[in-house]
């Protein structure tokens, strides 16, 4: 049985229209409390708009959403007490120092003067900003600004944290620091909903991922589920002798029952791996026939491939006639929900 607060976020059919543009076109999301949920999609897919509606910044045009069971429209003020938002563009005061920013947000959140000061010192320390605390933000690097932004979202220790593209524009080192911070938040019991354009980021951090494109969720599941929905792993072999290529292909056909592809560079064979159990049989057969391998590897599909396949912007971009928003509900929704 699930109680309302088992779910940090439940959204059904969220819609937001800006003029002609259906920025969010019927998004469903369910985020279990205590997990990291990744919303993955290209620029302009509707990620930020979705977050804005969940965070009470925008009013949905249709559909409904609850945060820990509280409606985002009817109980907006309650929802605001349960969330922390780090928006895509630093939502801190540029003209003030880091300390002043945090003090003001703390005071607005109802902390007493003394508690606000303690909390500010604590957060500055935690996010490595103590040295720069009194400098105006104009002199902050992108990474520092992001850290301050995140710190500001954590003042009230909200049970749910929205991170809108938390690492966009950060260098690799700062990015991995941010990832560590996000992981720590979850071990401390927070639920995190993050959006990202980076497949690696979703793969690394998120327990579950929703792939979103042109305002719709096109796939949802764990990163493993998403990967396997796109295709199986493939077996890659390099043969010691190029003359063995033809007999090796015959063996693969007879043992695995699939046809292998030979790559241009002689001696490299790629075969789809439908049943890993049968691979042993293949190798035994190779040995019996005296076919020698110099290299063997199993290639899993990357999230990149998943993404491209699902959004159709990739390799086999479908040239379906764009019949626009009129056919809004005929979109194929691929559900890989286990």
């Amino acid at each position: 049985m699930t109680t309302s607060s088992d779910w940090a976020v439940e959204a059904h059919g969220l819609v937001k229209v800006f003029g002609e543009n259906r920025a969010v076109d019927g998004v469903d999301l369910s985020v279990r409390a205590g997990t990291v949920y990744g919303v993955l999609g290209p620029n302009g897919a509707g990620k930020s708009t979705t977050i804005s509606m969940l965070a009470t910044l925008l009013r949905p045009d249709a559909g409904s959403a609850t945060i820990f069971g509280h409606d985002v429209v009817k109980e907006a003020q309650v929802v605001r007490q349960l969330i922390g938002v780090t928006a895509q563009f630093a939502s801190v005061d540029e003209k003030l120092s880091a300390t002043e920013n945090l003090i003001i947000f703390s005071r607005l959140l109802g902390l007493s003067r003394r508690d606000a000061r303690t909390k500010t010192t604590e957060l500055l320390e935690e996010f490595g900003l103590t040295e720069a605390a009194s400098r105006p933000l104009a002199k902050f690097s992108g990474g520092m600004r992001r850290r301050l932004d995140l710190a500001a979202s954590l003042i009230a220790q909200p049970p749910l944290i929205f991170l809108d593209e938390p690492t966009t524009g950060l260098d690799p080192r700062t990015r991995s620091q941010m990832w560590d911070t996000i992981r720590r938040l979850v071990t401390e019991g927070s639920t995190v909903l993050l959006t990202t354009q980076y497949l690696e980021e979703a793969d690394q951090l998120a327990d579950r991922i929703a792939v979103i494109d042109t305002g719709r969720v096109v796939a949802e599941g764990t990163s493993e589920e998403l990967k396997s929905s796109v295709g199986e792993s493939s077996l890659q072999l390099r043969l010691a002798s190029p003359t063995d290529v033809a007999p090796a292909r015959d063996l693969i056909r007879s043992v695995l029952g699939v046809s292998a592809a030979v790559s241009p560079e002689a001696g490299r064979i790629t075969a789809p791996m439908t049943d890993p159990d049968r691979i042993t049989d293949l190798f035994v057969a190779f040995r019996e026939r005296g076919i020698h391998l110099t290299e063997m590897s199993v290639q899993k599909p990357t999230l990149d491939e998943v993404f491209l396949t699902l959004t159709g912007h990739g390799v086999d971009a479908d040239a379906a006639p764009a019949d626009g928003a009129a056919a809004a509900h005929t979109s194929p929704k691929e559900s890989v929900n286990a």
Binding site: T3, S5, D6, R32, A33, G34, T35, F68, H70, K74, E75, A76, Q77, V78, Q81, L82, L109, G110, L111, D115, I155, A156, Q157, P158, P159, E188, G189, S190, T191
Partner: peptide, 22 residues
């Protein structure tokens, strides 16, 4: 507060431990 989906239902409070109000 520790939130764990499987164990006891967490008691949600607003900032500074205040009860939730709309």
């Amino acid at each position: 507060t520790t939130l764990s989906p499987t164990s006891t239902t967490p008691r949600l409070t607003g900032p500074a431990g205040r009860p939730l109000k709309n």
